[in-house]
Design a protein around this nucleic acid. Sequence first.
DNA 1: GTAGGGTTAG
Length: 656
Amino acid sequence: MRVWQGLVKLFEACNNGESVAQFHSLLLKTALIWDTFLSSKLQNLYSIYMPIQTARKLFDESPKRTAYAWNSMIKCYCKEKKYDDTLGLFSVMLSFEKPDNFTIPIVLKACSGLRALHFGRMVHGFVKKNDCINSSLFVGSGLIEFYSKCGYMEDALSVFEEYDQPDVVLWTTLITAYEQNDDPEEALYIFNRMVEDNGLVPDPITLVSLVSACAQLLDLNSGRSVHAFMIRREIQGGLSLWNALLNLYTKSSSVKAAAHLFRVMEEKDVISWGCMISCYAHNGSATRALELLSKMIVIGIQPNSVIVISALQACEATGNLEVGRKMHKLAVQKDFELDISVATALIDMYMSCNSPDEATDIFERMPEKDVVSWSAVLSGCVQNGMAHKSMEIFQGMIYSEIPPDSVMMVKILAACSEIGILQQACCIHGYLIRGGFDNNYFVGASLIESYAKCGSLEDAVKVFDGIQERDVVIWSSMIAGFGFHGHAKQALELFHQMIKNTKIVPNNVTFLSILSACSHGGLLEEGIKLYNKMVNDYKLTPESKHYSIMVDLVGRTGDLGQAMAIINQIPSPVSAHVWGALLGASRIHQNMEMGEVAMKNLSLLDPDHAGYYILLSNMYAVDGKWDVAAEVRNTVKEKQLKKLSGQSTIQYSVQR
DNA sequence: GTAGGGTTAG
């Protein structure tokens, strides 16, 4: 008896593999290996402290295998995510021992991991036959999670409904299941039922799923009330809950709220940093995102693949090829360069930074490609002036039997617009009718744009007329279409028709289209009127694109003083395009003084843009100042800047 | 001895 007690003390002291092995040999020596309590403890220690092979060896050699021993060994495999082995051992176990309520949840977890529908259903059958349901909530949550992971929410729900008195964990499992099956509304509804109809109090994990559902719905208000609830009740919640909140603020573009939360969080892990970096990267503060990343590395947190993706997006936005390449190197080091999402983000980054060759190299090395990666390469080709390649890419994807989605269709249409071959647009139109994409708003809008850009306003109008329910994007595209063709009056007519006859409210893009139509049609007064309407009546905040159109509009008419006045009103910072518009107007009206002012700013904001220097040098040349003109041209040479010569093609006629 | 949770490309 004293030996036994000593051994119990000893096993309590086991905290590494070596001591477990010693404990085991002692049990063998003293023949106490037969003691069920001690041998169970030994099994449990295996799964914690021993490498799985050692544990398996001891398990195989052990003279007596209790149900506990089987469970521990199975759990061991499951913990290491060796789900095949988990199920394999479970199958062997069935010949020796009857699984109990402790075995079932572990096995179900493995089925979930493998999405092994048949196996899981078989386990469910076993559970029903042995009536485990009512004796164990653990089995229930295992089943719910399993069906949810396989996407079978109806089965998950019916398991839940078998319980008369589900506890908070079971409710939470169901809420999480809906949240992860893209049904956040239902998740919120279930939560309400749990709290209001059943009077249960949510625990921090319930709140994690709740906040995640709010984030999916971009329901900032509900999310905030959870945050307030936590503060009121002084719920500590743990890191996951804070991270879920941080994600909510990130997703709903509440940069300030996110930054504040991030600042006050006492504990932060790599996910918290990742949320904050992605928040900056997606909300126009790419530089901040990169700064935060270097800060993170300095304090010794290693970036994971998710963070590398966010950083790449920040590089993309700022055109920072240098940091982009560094991220690439890091991804290679960490061995996730060719993970589908990392590789796709790399392709986007290289394409946006004008390095299509590096992007293509990655694409060709990818072992697995999906519609997103194909889309990235396709639109990258268009961005880099190789739209002619895009049809080949599209075909390549079809051959590899990956079905296109609506985003892909939008991109291929953009490629058509760029190439300007009407027949191609017609073919794609046919393809997307057959594929059932023609009732998608974005596809419809792109189709209108493509027809207009390929020269057939007629077809664009036909598509527009054929769309029964038009949203603001469809209207805007049609307005822009008239604008491309210089029909400013028709564009205006359509705009007024939209406001008068529909409940659709024009947005920033609509105004961009209509203002650009006015600018190209020389409708100065109308343009100014509409701009005022946009700001005063619709309370829209103009973006730099609106400003550059206004400068363009006013500048074209020759009133450069007025154009300058507009620039002076812009709340800083003024983008390069705005000064570019002023430079262009100065060139038209040969206003040297304004041209030099514009160039001074441009040489700071976009010093590597060859086109601006050439415009300026042409102005000097017209003025007869040949020496200054030559000097400017020399700058271009010294900087080794290249101006891609402008080219545009459009198919002249189509036989139909 | 067993269960539910946070970040990921267009």
